[in-house]
């Protein structure tokens, strides 16, 4: 695909998004930094590169759509939506507050740019399928993107939806699996193993690619490949690091759903090259 931004620019956006994610979760006093940081590079690649979208589009306009099935990654989604101009950056500090447009988990009716309401795990892929079917009925050549967490694929509904996407040959659906290997209670492999990931999705009829979910080149390459597969849905199996970008948050289940203290925030921002 032709990109309007080069990789260095995207990395700089992702760095700023990490700052936004941590700052807003700190301000809220609660939220999910670990999975937001593992997902943010892919979200930047989608919203600032791969997706044909924009706040000027009206509800039924032709556009690519994204479903954050792992809804607890909301801070990452809100950061890129603000970056793309769906709402003012001043809203970010209202995350999780009473009557904020930024609910604890994505809520489409209140947040410009959020296509699908999520938060209860396992439900986003079915809805992405529905969007993809609607686009196909309307003869649209657009894509529907979704992102699941790895722990989330323990939900049975994910596999119902996986069957549906293959059965209806949803070549216009590209789903990311944010495989950061951790969930609230610990390592995914200890809590409830989901391996073999690639073989499972292939057996369900999906086109599967494994990538490093923090490498923009690999992310765009995988999207390009996925778009060429028109007779089956695509899974981009992204190996990621939970808490990526903040040394003391990386690979620790503790940071799944804990807000940083002021000291921790300052330390994290310093690591990200941001002046406090």
């Amino acid at each position: 695909m032709k990109l309007t931004k080069d990789v260095n620019e995207l990395m700089e956006i992702a760095r700023r998004m990490r700052v936004d994610i941590l700052t807003m979760i700190h301000a809220a006093g609660s939220g999910h930094p670990g999975g937001s940081l593992s997902a943010i590079d892919m979200l930047v690649a989608l919203y600032c590169g791969a997706m044909d979208h924009g706040p000027e589009r009206k509800k039924r306009d032709r556009r690519d759509k994204f479903v954050l099935s792992k809804g607890h990654g909301a801070p990452a989604l809100y950061a890129v939506l603000a970056e793309c101009g769906y709402f003012g950056r001043e809203h970010l500090k209202t995350l999780r507050q009473y009557e904020s447009i930024l609910s604890g988990h994505p809520y489409a009716p209140s947040t410009p740019g959020v296509e699908i309401t999520t938060g209860s795990l396992g439900q986003g892929l079915s809805q992405a399928n529905g969007l993809a079917l609607a686009n196909r009925l309307d003869g649209q050549d657009t894509f529907v993107y979704a992102m699941m967490g790895d722990g989330e694929t323990q939900e049975g509904q994910i596999w119902e939806a996986a069957m549906t996407a293959a059965h209806y040959k949803l070549g216009n659906l590209i789903a990311f699996l944010d495989n950061n290997e951790l969930q609230i209670d610990g390592f995914v492999c200890d809590v409830m193993g989901i391996e073999p990931i690639g073989k499972k999705w292939e057996a369900f009829g999906w086109h599967v690619q494994q990538i490093d979910g923090h490498d923009f080149g690999q992310i765009f390459n995988a999207i390009d490949n996925a778009k060429k597969v028109t007779d089956k849905p695509s899974l981009i199996w992204a190996r990621t690091v939970k808490g990526k970008g903040v040394s003391f948050m990386e690979r620790l289940a503790k940071w799944h759903g804990t807000a940083p203290s002021t000291d921790e925030l300052n330390k994290a921002l310093a690591e990200l090259g941001e002046k406090p």
């Binding site: 509800k59 039924r60 479903v67 489409a108 296509e115 699908i116 439900q123 892929l125 079915s126 809805q127 992405a128 399928n129 529905g130 969007l131 993809a132 079917l133 609607a134 686009n135 009925l137 309307d138 049975g156 509904q157 119902e160 939806a161 069957m163 549906t164 059965h167 209806y168």
Partner: peptide, 24 residues
Amino acid sequence: RFFNMGVAEQDMIGTAAGLAAGGK
């Protein structure tokens, strides 16, 4: 315009919600 979802009611309701979000 008819979608048989198999014996999978949770996915059926989710897919219906997605279709509605897509204007159907």
